[in-house]
């Protein structure tokens, strides 16, 4: 999209705005039309840059997210999410969101409510669990002997759990709470 300067390459007829150029075109007309549409797309791109640009602070958060890059941690994949995988209960409001993550033999079940989160690591084991909202250190929980954990801070926005178990570190897939 470099031809923003006008009629270069269009043999002098700039082809804008003919009412008859909607559908059956051939040869130069079709070429002119494509060229016009490219210009229009470019104009939209500029308009979006002015009226709906990506906020600079937001992009900075993505730059800082590099800190989340950790090749040693195993990723527990999201295998169930009630938002997409469960049949909604009619008329039910404020139903908890149920999530299940899996990696290897480890399962993490999590339930999110407006009051907080609770969950369980299976098979039952003690683990330290960090509630992540971004690259910064999150709040830390410890499971009981049954692998259960609770937090009274309801997650909002980007969310993941980092589990430190005897067998190493597991991080759940990120999702939007």
């Amino acid at each position: 999209m470099t031809n923003t300067d006008g009629t270069e390459g269009t043999d002098g007829t700039d082809g804008t705005g003919g009412p008859d150029d909607m559908d059956d075109m051939s040869g130069d007309d079709a070429f002119d039309d494509d060229f016009d549409l490219d210009l229009l797309e470019e104009e939209l791109r500029r308009a979006a840059g002015i009226l709906d640009p990506i906020p600079a602070q937001l992009q900075q958060l993505a730059v800082e997210a590099f800190a989340l890059h950790d090749l040693d941690a195993r990723i527990a994949e999201l295998t169930f999410d009630s938002v997409t995988d469960a049949i909604p209960v009619r008329g039910a409001v404020d139903v908890p969101r149920m999530l299940t993550f899996h990696v290897g033999g480890v399962t993490v079940d999590v339930e999110l409510t407006g009051q907080g989160l609770m969950g369980q690591v299976l098979p039952p084991q003690t683990a330290r669990i960090e509630v992540l909202r971004g690259p910064q250190v999150g709040s830390t929980l410890t499971t009981d002997d049954m692998g259960r954990f609770t937090s009274t801070e309801p997650p909002a926005g980007p969310f993941a759990l980092r589990l430190r178990t005897d067998e190493g570190t597991v991080v759940t897939d990120w999702l939007t709470a």
């Binding site: 937001l58 993505a62 997210a65 989340l68 950790d70 990723i75 971004g134 926005g157 897939d173 939007t176």
Partner: peptide
């Protein structure tokens, strides 16, 4: 608000999955 959150989730997940 949602756009900001989803944008972050996407990049956090990309950073996490980088290399995989």
């Amino acid at each position: 608000a949602d756009a900001h959150e989803v944008y972050q989730t996407v990049w956090f997940r990309f950073a996490q999955h980088l290399g995989r």
